[in-house]
C-alpha cells in the first residue's frame, strides 16, 4: 500500500493555502465559540427570569461559592495589601512621599487589584470546580438523566450557580479589599514605620465612595462572567477524564481573559461616568 504514496514538493502556494486555511479555521472556531457562549448566556438569562431558582440548590451554591471561599479570599487580600506595601514603599520613600503610601495602596486595592485578583482567585477556585463538576455530570450522563426527569438543566444547574456568583463574588471582593487594607496598613505602619495618622488621613482623601462602588460594580460582572464561562465549559465537556480536565483548564483561561477584558472596558466606562457626574478626572494620590 505504501508504494502508492509519492512524495511531492510543497510549493509556496501550498504553504500559503495551508496558512490561510489554518487562520480561517481558527477564526471561524472562535466565532462559533463566541456564538455558542452567547446563546448559552441568553438561555441562562431566560431561565433566570422565567422561573425562580430552587431554594435548596441556591443555598447550597451560595454556601460552596461564598462561605467556603472566604478563607482563601481573606488570605489573598491580606497578601495583596502587604505586597503592595513592600513594592511601593521604596519608591515613595525615594521621593519623600512615604506618608502618602496608604493612599496608593488603598486606592489600587479597592479600585483594581482587590476586585481583579479576588476574581482571578475565584475563577481558579470556583470556576474550575464548577466546570469539573458539571463536566463530570455531563460525562456520566447525569445532566441527561436530569433532563429526562423533567427539569431544565440550565434552570436547575446553571441558574443557582450564576445567582450565587453574582451575589457572593462582590461580597468576597469586599472581604478581599478589607483584608488588603488591613494587611497593607499593618505592614506599612508596624513594619515600615509609616506614620499612622498620615497613612489613614491620605487614604481617606484619596479613596472616594465612588472608587469603592466601582470595584464592587466590576466584581458583579466578573462573577457573572466566571459563572457563565465555567458552566458553559462544564456543559460542553468532551468525553472522558481528559475532557473534564480540559473543560476545567479552559474555563479558568477564558474566565481570566474575560476578567481582564471586562476590567478594561468597565474601567473606561466607570471613569467616563465619574467625569460626567462628578467632573474632573481621577484623584491623584500625590
Amino acid at each position: 500500500m505504501s508504494s502508492e504514496w509519492t512524495a511531492e514538493k510543497i510549493t509556496l502556494a501550498d504553504r500559503l493555502t495551508i496558512f490561510v486555511g489554518t487562520i480561517g479555521k481558527s477564526l471561524s472556531d472562535r466565532i462559533i465559540y463566541a456564538g455558542q457562549l452567547a446563546a448559552f448566556s441568553l438561555s441562562t438569562f431566560y431561565w433566570l427570569f422565567a422561573r425562580p431558582a430552587k431554594k435548596e440548590t441556591l443555598v447550597g451554591a451560595c454556601y460552596r461559592i461564598g462561605v467556603q471561599s472566604l478563607p482563601v479570599i481573606m488570605l489573598t487580600g491580606t497578601f495583596i495589601g502587604m505586597v503592595l506595601a513592600v513594592q511601593t514603599h521604596p519608591q515613595f520613600k525615594a521621593v519623600g512621599l512615604e506618608s502618602r503610601l496608604g493612599a496608593a495602596i488603598n486606592l489600587s486595592l479597592v479600585k483594581e487589584l482587590g476586585p481583579v485578583l479576588a476574581a482571578t482567585m475565584l475563577a481558579g477556585r470556583i470556576g474550575s470546580s464548577i466546570a469539573a463538576e458539571l463536566g463530570t455530570m455531563r460525562v456520566t450522563e447525569q445532566i441527561d438523566a436530569l433532563a429526562s426527569m423533567g427539569p431544565n438543566p440550565i434552570h436547575y444547574l446553571v441558574v443557582p450557580r450564576f445567582i450565587a456568583c453574582l451575589f457572593m463574588i462582590p461580597g468576597l471582593t469586599i472581604m478581599a479589599d478589607a483584608m488588603g487594607v488591613l494587611g497593607g496598613a499593618f505592614f506599612s505602619i508596624k513594619l515600615l514605620g509609616v506614620d499612622w495618622g498620615y497613612y489613614w488621613d491620605y487614604s481617606r482623601h484619596a479613596v472616594s465612595q465612588y472608587d469603592v462602588f466601582a470595584g464592587m460594580f466590576k466584581s458583579i460582572f466578573f462573577g457573572g462572567a466566571i459563572a457563565l464561562v465555567s458552566c458553559y465549559h462544564g456543559f460542553n465537556c468532551d468525553a472522558g477524564a481528559e475532557g473534564v480536565g480540559k473543560a476545567s483548564t479552559r474555563s479558568f483561561v477564558v474566565s481570566f481573559v474575560m476578567i481582564l477584558l471586562l476590567d478594561l472596558l468597565l474601567g473606561i466606562f466607570l471613569d467616563k461616568i465619574h467625569v460626567a457626574w462628578f467632573g474632573g478626572g481621577a484623584k491623584s494620590v500625590v
Binding site: 463530570t136 455530570m137 456520566t140 450522563e141 447525569q142 441527561d144 438523566a145 433532563a147 429526562s148 426527569m149
Partner: peptide, 15 residues
C-alpha cells in the same frame, strides 16, 4: 418527560 422513565447505561445517579 415526566411520563417517561429512563434507565441509563451507568445508572447516572446524582452523586
Amino acid at each position: 418527560r415526566c411520563r417517561i422513565g429512563f434507565v441509563f447505561q451507568q445508572a447516572a445517579l446524582f452523586d
